[in-house]
Amino acid sequence: MSDNAVEVKNLTKVFRPGLKKEYVVAVDNLSFEVRAGEVYGLIGPNGSGKSTTMKVVLGLMAANKGSAKVFGLDSGDIRARNEIGFLPENPYFYKHLSGAETLRFYGKLCGMKGRALQDRIAELLQLVELEGAANRRLGGYSKGMLQRIGLAQSLIQNPRLVILDEPTAGVDPVGSRQIRDLILRLRDEGYTVFLCSHLLEQVQEVCDRVGILFEGRMRREGTLDELIAIENQTSMTIENASPELIAEIQNLVRSHEGTRLVEEGHSRTSLESLFIQIAERGREGKS
């Protein structure tokens, strides 16, 4: 058996909104894999095809061309779905259910029951720090709490792979920090995590490997180190961008660069600029 949790090969997905002839190529000949045990992040601006890719992997959508496999099984296979926990983008769960009832519902859908389900619910509520709100209806949950109950929901049947679509979108900084810590914990517990985001900072903090998607195509892929190493050479873009930045960098050089704080701030901007650069190159290529 292969070592890959997710294997996407030459995936193409075309939408024809409405009855018109025009069509949108949401995903264009995309290939990548997520290895078992790693945290893989797909990043790209809104509309670049991240959610579509995830839906094809889950079997919620069919590909026009190419294939997606989960642990060697065709996506859409009911056995494959038993291995996946999914948290969709901006999810809404049944508002009339409490947190614990929500987890019970999804657990039962996975064939769990009795003591085992009860214990798993308690364990997950503790993991996402929602024990206090377990019996409150979701109608009164904040965005961050919803996202965390959604994460717990995705883990209920002990899947091997967790797919998270924009797990921190719309969540405040404290909340997204909590979610980030959760993802790191999942990683340490041996879950394979496949997430996507347009928020680079978070991807950078949790992912082992990153793929940059733009207009449905994979523009760059690799470990963070690899991507940032390449980026160091092209950090010229920052200098060109704004004279104030140049002045600042000169200041830094003067005051003996290399303090820890500066390095962190610097590398953070660099992935972002790579991202923007790729986006711009893509736009130029098109026009």
Partner: peptide
């Protein structure tokens, strides 16, 4: 170039397959 991903992707023990449905 560093050899891709041998050390960059930490090898944790992935989880075992679930029960059949």
């Amino acid at each position: 170039d560093p050899p891709p991903s041998t050390e960059a992707t930490p090898r944790r023990t992935p989880r075992a397959a679930g029960k059949a449905v």
